[in-house]
């Protein structure tokens, strides 16, 4: 078992075009570090310089926006599905 991570079109250049990849970790932050070991550069698009979630993506754990859970510290477990989407916003 692992955690399934769904990748948006804009980030599939980091996953060789794959729509979905798998990873492991205790928290979302761990998971992103694990993914980055095989998909170099991906973490940098998800996490900002302060170690928090990048403002330009929405991340969901089993359909729940992780901003309303624990952000980058949100615990994750085998069988979970993490969905990443580009935030649509502007001024």
């Amino acid at each position: 078992m692992a955690i399934e991570v769904r990748i948006p079109t804009i980030l599939r250049n980091y996953t060789g075009g794959e729509k979905s990849v798998e990873g492991n970790g205790e928290t979302l932050g761990d998971l992103f570090t694990d993914l980055d070991s095989r998909h170099s550069g991906l973490r940098g698009r998800l996490v900002n310089d302060d170690g928090g979630l990048n403002r330009f993506v929405n991340v969901y754990l089993n359909d729940e926006d992780v901003r309303f859970l624990g952000g980058i510290e949100t615990p994750v477990a085998d069988g979970n599905v993490v969905t990443i989407l580009p935030a649509v916003a502007g001024g």
């Binding site: 929405n58 969901y60 359909d63 926006d65 901003r67 969905t83 989407l85 935030a87 649509v88 916003a89 502007g90 001024g91």
Partner: peptide
């Protein structure tokens, strides 16, 4: 400012 509501975006 605008931002798509996150549940609706999903």
């Amino acid at each position: 400012f605008f931002e798509f509501e996150s549940g609706e975006l999903l």
